[in-house]
Amino acid sequence: MSTPARQAREALGVRLRDIRQDADLTGRALAAGAGWHYTKVSKLEHGVINASEEDVRTWCRLCGADDQAADLIAVVRSIDTMFVEWRRLLRSGTRTRQRESVRFEADTKLFRAFEPQVIPGLLQTAEYAAAILSAFIGFHDLPDDVEEGVAARMERQSILYRGDHRFHMVFCQAALTLGVAPPDVLAGQLDRLLALSTLPRVHLGVIPTRAAHGFLPLHGFWILDAKTVLVETISAELKLTQPRDIAVYSRAFERLAGSAAYGREARALITGALRDLDDDAS
């Protein structure tokens, strides 16, 4: 199965091939000019091997496309960092990852987050976060540091109250009822959302189950300013930094946000979910 990193290498290879063809060079001629084995050009164009920054500079120089080198080098750097497997990232536990988030979130002014089925991490109660992290640790057989991970996540939430950060958080109504936590924990989480929805810097949107979607919500993602998109898959975290990727996710976010209810309407959905929990308990 092609991984996102492999797909990115293949996309880079297509761009390199187009540049070569526009320069009217054969693969063998380019390889000879660069002093490479003749098969290297084909491997780079098909995403079989990673291109280095020096490879890109040489390619662009020989093809008379120096003006494209900087953008292509940025692509190479993003491929190197975009795909990190959870087991490799979290081999020292979840606390380290949470503390890393504190560092890069401190430099972010505008947070845009979409989650289809869970409450975004910055809005979670300690009990809800513990349920999420416990399930994640158990699934991936990671070191059990739930308490430390929860403490670090709670530390992250101080950003909601200091500095000039702004938060636009959108999630589907299903997140209000999904059984990822015991009913009493979910009730506490919903109470927390009602309180956070009144913060001036938090723009909280809930997409009603039967809302007409402007975009199909395939997975969750976070956009940090206009610099980085973070996507959590089952097996890995993707970090996207290319302007074209950020533009795509920004467009998706605007369409999802356009389907959401805000203010009094959003609070009515949360209150309704709380009432259903109370009815189930009685």
Rank of each mutant, 00 (worst) to 15 (best):
A5C: 10
E10K: 10
D22G: 04
A29Y: 04
A34G: 09
W36S: 13
G47N: 06
A51E: 02
E53N: 13
D55I: 03
R61I: 01
L62D: 05
C63S: 14
A69C: 09
I79M: 06
I79G: 01
I79D: 04
R87I: 10
L90Y: 07
R97P: 03
S101E: 10
E105A: 01
I119W: 00
Q124G: 09
A126Q: 07
L133C: 11
A135W: 07
G138I: 07
F139K: 11
H140C: 08
H140I: 04
D141G: 11
D145P: 14
E147W: 00
E148W: 04
E148N: 03
A152L: 08
M154W: 05
R156L: 14
I159L: 15
G163V: 13
G163R: 14
Q173K: 03
L178S: 10
V180W: 08
P182T: 09
P182M: 13
P183Q: 03
L194H: 07
S197V: 00
V202S: 12
V202H: 07
H203M: 10
H203Y: 07
P208D: 11
T209E: 11
F215K: 06
F221L: 12
L224P: 01
V229T: 07
K239V: 14
G258R: 02
A268N: 09
A268E: 14
G272K: 03
G272Q: 04
A273Y: 01
A281H: 09
